[in-house]
Design a protein around this nucleic acid. Structure first.
Length: 423
RNA sequence: GGUGAGGUGGCUGAGUGGUCGAAAGCAGCGCUUUGCUAAAGCGCCGUACCCCAAAAGGGUACCGAGGGUUCGAAUCCCUCCCUCACCGCCA
């Protein structure tokens, strides 16, 4: 959520920044300003009357204690009270309108984000490693999976319908190995603290990290419970500190969590849906940081590096993309994607998205820290996938396939599997 | 699922209709005294919002949330949320 004061004081700047995104959110600024003005006018008037009522009520108390007559004043206060009720209703209405509108306005892109309307303007920042040489025609992960019986897409549909995976045998083991490997690296070498949060969260949490109110149809909801299945660990993990004021010495907070992620993927039928690339439930290891405004962009770089490290250790060729303004997620001020090479698709495949939300989420969550001057400030929140499992799985088996159809396990992963290959 | 207790400032905790934004203690900050440490004394010490060009200052709201009663609610009533304890059931 943007700061209403920023909008009030620098409306042109806010409009200009919003206009660099796709969509016409700049138009909403006018509306917010109008409501804000009306709200403040109403509040001022209301507070004047409340002050009057407080004064008179005290007088009544004083007179009563002296045994004096108070009927007249009481009647006057009653009248004021009626006006107050009206104004309170108006003030509350404006307040709600303002909040709802603010919740629908996306974050401002950071100045370092490349300008552009859509993904075609994204910038490739760097590449790591090189494309693997695969003898013969590279099989894609679906073909490999069938051949090695490491997942079973057909039977999985008996359980949840299309869009669900069932890993089997060595595949299930490989998936679990990847989770453990990632968490171990992030906790032992990158200094993250592991958490294992609930996967179901309340509406407030979904609002806090910007999934709601705009994207309700993308989420799974438990009927009659006001609980949602988390679409990413970002939701439970970031919301852990909702409504708190953290001492600055605790920052940056670095958290890593493994969770399954649940996404309806409504409207994505036919898009990149082959195999295990886009599914309704998938496992992910997520990195979350809570930090200060001064350090958040440095922290974003190191979070990205932490996520990249996993692919480096697995020896997988990848590239880092800086998303342009038009391709940024709703709450993000800046986002890097990591895309790993998929020989089977002959294309790069997104496995991680690392974002700085600045104070956008913190305002929604009322998450603050107390700085050295004892001022409470909104924290900056960051998160990134440290990595999405099915896609890493798919890329890994494609990159490591051998001429005889087996898959060579990267050395670092072998201890987690207890084997050097899957065949 | 049952029964009971309870949610007040950074913490502990008093407060059952009026001068209570809230006693007291602890922690914190400043000053004084003191050879150091320690101790003592005095003062300050919540958040958000509104008015004001700004500062100074003033005002309003907030005692889990929402609603009600009342001239006036931390205090009375209703609903909800949450926490804790014990019992039952259970992975």
């Amino acid at each position: 959520m943007l700061d209403i004061r920023l909008i009030r004081e620098k409306p042109d700047f806010v409009r200009e920044r919003l206009a660099t995104r796709s969509g016409d959110d700049a138009a909403k600024i006018e509306q917010v300003l109008k409501i804000d003005a009306a709200r403040r006018k109403t509040e001022t008037e209301l507070q004047g009357l409340q002050a009057e009522r407080n004064r008179l009520s005290k007088e009544i108390g004083a007179k009563k204690s002296k045994g004096e007559e108070t009927k007249e004043i009481e009647a006057a206060v009653k009248q004021i009270g009626e006006k107050i009720v009206d104004l309170e209703r108006n003030a509350a209405k404006f307040d709600e309108q303002q909040r709802n509108l603010l919740l629908e306005i996306p974050n401002l892109p950071h100045e370092s984000v490349p300008l552009g309307k859509d993904a075609s303007a994204n910038k490739v920042l760097r590449e790591w490693g090189s494309m693997p040489r695969i003898a013969g025609k590279a099989l894609d992960h679906v073909a490999l999976g069938e051949k090695l019986k490491i997942f079973d897409l057909e039977r999985a549909t008996k359980l949840g319908g299309s869009g669900f995976i069932c890993f089997t045998g060595a595949g299930a083991r490989l998936e679990r190995a990847l989770i453990n490997f990632m968490i171990d690296i992030h906790t032992r070498e990158h200094g993250y603290a592991e958490v294992s949060p609930p996967f179901l969260v309340r509406r407030d949490c979904m609002i806090g990290t910007s999934q709601l109110p705009k994207f309700e149809t993308d989420m799974y909801k438990i009927e009659g419970e006001e609980l949602f299945l988390a679409p990413t660990a970002e939701v439970p993990v970031t919301n852990l500190y909702r409504e708190e004021i953290l001492p600055i010495v605790d920052l940056p907070k670095k958290l890593v969590a493994y969770t399954p992620c649940f996404r309806r993927e409504a409207g994505s039928a036919g898009r990149e849906t082959r195999g295990i690339i886009r599914v309704h439930q998938f496992d992910k290891v997520e990195l979350v940081k809570i930090t200060t405004s001064e350090k958040s962009y440095d922290e974003l770089e190191s979070l990205l590096a932490d996520a990249e490290k996993i692919l480096q250790l697995l020896g997988l060729h990848y590239r880092v993309i800086a998303l342009c303004t038009g391709d940024l997620g709703f709450g993000s001020a800046k986002t890097y994607d990591i895309e790993v090479w998929s020989p089977g698709q002959n294309a790069y495949l997104e496995v991680s998205s690392c974002s700085n939300f600045e104070d956008y989420q913190a305002r929604r969550m009322n998450l603050r820290y107390r700085d050295a001057d004892k001022k409470n400030k909104f924290a900056h929140t960051l998160n990134g996938s440290g990595l999405a499992l099915p896609r890493v799985f798919a890329a890994l088996i494609e990159n490591c396939q051998q001429p005889d159809g087996s898959v060579q396990i990267p050395e670092k992963l072998q201890p987690y599997i207890g084997a050097s290959e899957i065949r």
